[in-house]
Write a protein that binds this DNA or RNA. Structure first.
Lengths: 344, 344
DNA sequence: GGGAGTTGTGAAAACCTTTGCATGAAACCC
DNA sequence: GGGTTTCATGCAAAGGTTTTCACAACTCCC
């Protein structure tokens, strides 16, 4: 079994600087310890001369803290998660942390695999970016168990979407977001409003569906069964789902899509079905991913502060890292707003 | 300084299974060693009972190999990189590796910071997903130096786009891709073809610009200076750049955008400028990001096998991990093709 | 039935840092 | 000028694995 080349260690630097390894560690560790200015110089010079790079693994082993944060996402190629990851990365990077992205593609086995790996790596914290699976899923129990183990081992965690296990969160109110979208459509005179729902396996999808039902009821509209079409969360899912929906319930005059990808797909489907947006059909999504304003017509949506979500999550993790006594079950709810464009 | 909770170690498992830690390591390490079936059972049972999770840090320290791959990207919220990252993740995950995503946002300082961190983490390999900065940049030298150090320390690396330092690569031919786009426009009767170029700091942008110039020359067209507009790589850059381009050179009948984001922005800009696509203006980009077919009109583009690029990169890294004698400067070139939709 | 392999296990050394304790020197106080 | 802080540094013990070496117990072969 081949070994990697061997970078030099702290003792080499110590030898060159004519001090003990402990001293080198103190200088490089940056802690304001009592170090003679001249010694510090010698150490710094030796380290620079040798291009020494401290071994983060050994350091983590000794200190029991890693500079690693993890972001669990449904699909990193989805710009919604891209924005979130970007936000996390930005604040994590500024404080010397690195972020690991784990894609689980809505396959719970992959999620479990990632969780096990993260545990074994003793990551400092993990951000659950997308919502977890519904508790009824056969693997729901194992997921919960792993999350608990992770916590027991000292990993901080924060959720940006509903999870099957309790944990601190920075979140939007999914039901309210859905209701906001529906009310916007109602205000524009729509009654027959279809819902292109997300994957059944996800909690978010269920909540948004609930929000839709509730808002419809509150507006005194009885949502017919064929008005709801369950799909995935991708653009193609949106295209196909909307096509089915428009065929099954041609009477609908508006579609509330559970996320923006679905809405983008629906927009294309509407055109293909010969219904022009917004005159023949209105569409509204959730998320406000960057592409929406560049579409024609521009897609209206419930805007989610994705970037802020990511930044806050990272800040949350780092804050508690320094002061674990903050270990409360705090829940931060971020406001959403309706961004109206031409599609409604 | 607070410490994280203490997960149990291998010696606890050893005690419970009444064997030595070495034996536990042998059982869990999975290497086909001579282990009595009954001993293996005892160890496995104890590990399961205690929910033992081996410490990957300690393991990496001892073996001098980490299960970590890194992906350096311009911007993870750009779906082009999202796809690549997704491909890397898929094959890395299947072989027990985890991938770290580092966003450098075209700020070389961030790139350097990430490289230093990766070195210190002794990552097994790094994928340079986006192109590097042009060598003339003031930080170009330091970048090269860090890449060399990384290699000296045993990290494998592979580039998916041109880099200032030599390394194995899995790449498309950027000049050829650009030429393909231009020729496609020429074949459709265009002569006055504008170029919406990428960020000046990037090698890819320079190569694609070169490809544009060469293809124009080969088609016997003299590209006027105002036909080229330098921008960033985002959709908004595309919108603004195309707006400027159309104002400065209203005679152009087609735009070759250096990437799809620019093309998407250009599409919106064309509409805003009252030029309908494709009748008044043709547009073609590079990349084939997932959203293109859902736009109206669908955007034509030079399709890049992003997903495959990511997968191949990861495979490349893992292959060389097992057999370092393959340490050749191999260069793999992937074919691109033109995907015609309605925009040209 | 004695040597040669094979198999199963443990002790101990490495991997590279950090950090608590100890020590010695210098500075300070009355 | 002796006692008390403060400063600067070294020693050695973690931290949790893997792996080499050694050893003992079998099996096998003629």
């Amino acid at each position: 079994m081949p070994r990697r080349a061997r970078p030099l260690s702290i003792v080499e630097v110590a030898r060159q600087a004519k001090v003990s390894p402990a001293t080198v560690s103190r200088v490089l560790g940056g802690q304001r310890k009592h170090i003679a200015a001249q010694t510090r110089q010698r150490v710094l010079a030796a380290a620079a001369r040798l291009d020494y790079s401290p071994n983060a693994l050994a350091r983590s082993l000794a200190t029991r803290r890693t500079p690693i944060l993890a972001a669990l996402v449904h699909d990193i190629s989805d710009p919604y998660f891209g924005e979130i990851a970007s936000g996390i990365e930005a604040v994590a990077g500024d404080s010397g942390h690195v972020v690991m992205v784990c894609n689980w593609l809505l396959e719970p086995e992959r999620l479990l695999r990632s969780l096990r790996l993260l545990r074994s790596l003793r990551v400092a914290g993990v951000v659950f970016c997308g919502s977890g699976i519904v508790p009824e899923h056969p693997l729901g129990g194992e997921t919960r168990r792993l999350i608990d183990l992770l916590r027991r081992d000292g990993a901080r965690m924060v959720a940006l979407a509903p999870q099957p296990a309790p944990m601190p969160s920075v979140m939007i109110d999914n039901r309210a977001a859905a209701a906001l979208a529906v009310r916007h459509l109602v205000e524009h005179g729509h009654r027959a409003i279809g819902h292109l729902a997300g994957p059944r396996i996800l909690l978010t999808a269920a909540l948004r569906h609930e929000g839709y039902l509730r808002a419809m009821a509150e507006s005194g509209i009885e949502a017919a069964a064929p008005w709801v079409e369950w799909a995935g969360f991708g653009m193609l899912d949106g295209f196909e789902g909307a096509t089915r929906l428009l065929a099954a319930a041609p009477e609908i005059t508006a579609i509330f899509a559970a996320n923006d990808q679905l809405a983008v797909g629906a927009l294309a489907a509407a055109e293909s079905a010969g219904r022009s947006v917004p005159s023949d059909l209105s569409i509204v999504g959730i998320g406000n991913v960057p592409v929406l304003p560049f579409l024609r017509p521009g897609l209206s949506t419930v805007s989610v502060p994705t970037r802020t979500l990511g930044e806050e999550a990272a800040r949350h993790l780092l804050r508690r890292r320094q002061r674990p006594e903050l270990e409360t079950q705090e829940t931060q709810t971020l406001a959403v707003g309706l961004t109206a464009r031409q599609s409604v």
